[in-house]
């Protein structure tokens, strides 16, 4: 136990103290003293290499980041949604090219595809596709803003996140209702 209140052990599970840690591990522990407790997950652990090359695991708890022990948060859910919508609209891109091809061919090709697109299952797919595109577009702009250094404050992250979801719904509604 150290003064932060968590167990420190090496890879074999033997208790160790600050002195037995490598420089990097010591630096990481010291960092924890200036980060408010609420900001890190209670079940975290640090893995590092000692000067002797053996792995030290500063906890007997599951290694972090372990997705299983994290409560889903708006940030992580939005991040994975960007990926999922990206893959879905990549499939949509293939569908778009088939649609253009059907227009070029005309005749039965065009009739059967456009017949499907105005049917209920077709329309449902289209609305899901619109929502995914609108989400990926808005969240993509948020990504680009981060890339040039805007919006990193945690309050901004939450605010722009909610804005993205709201805008995606508004755009989808706008596209289908106008």
């Amino acid at each position: 136990m150290n003064t932060l209140g968590f167990k420190m052990s090496n890879a074999k599970g033997h208790a160790i103290g600050m002195k037995q840690l490598g420089t990097m591990a010591q630096a990481q522990i010291l960092l924890l003293y200036i980060i408010p407790k609420e900001k890190y997950h209670p079940q975290f652990s640090i893995i590092c290499f000692s000067e002797f090359g053996e792995t030290e695991n500063l906890s007997t708890r599951p290694l972090s980041p372990h997705l299983q022990v994290y409560r889903p948060q708006i940030t992580s859910v939005m991040s994975i949604l960007h990926r999922i919508t990206g893959v879905i609209i990549a499939l949509g891109a293939i569908a778009i090219s088939l649609w253009i091809e059907s227009v070029a061919r005309g005749g039965a090709w065009y009739e059967s595809l456009s017949g499907f697109l105005v049917s209920v299952p077709g329309k449902s797919l289209l609305i899901i596709w619109t929502l995914c595109t609108a989400y990926h577009l808005c969240n993509g702009i948020r990504h680009l803003a981060w890339d040039i250094g805007y919006g990193f404050e945690i309050s901004q992250v939450y605010r722009t996140g909610k804005l993205v979801v709201l805008l995606a719904v508004i755009i989808t509604a706008g596209v289908w209702l106008i």
Binding site: L126, T130, T133, G140, I141, I171, V175
Partner: peptide, 22 residues
């Protein structure tokens, strides 16, 4: 970056075409 305007344009123009004749 290039896709931002193009995607807006596509979203807002494609729906009108779906019910149309060939």
């Amino acid at each position: 970056l290039v896709l931002i305007p193009l995607t807006f344009w596509f979203l807002f123009s494609i729906v009108d075409q779906l019910g149309q004749g060939h």
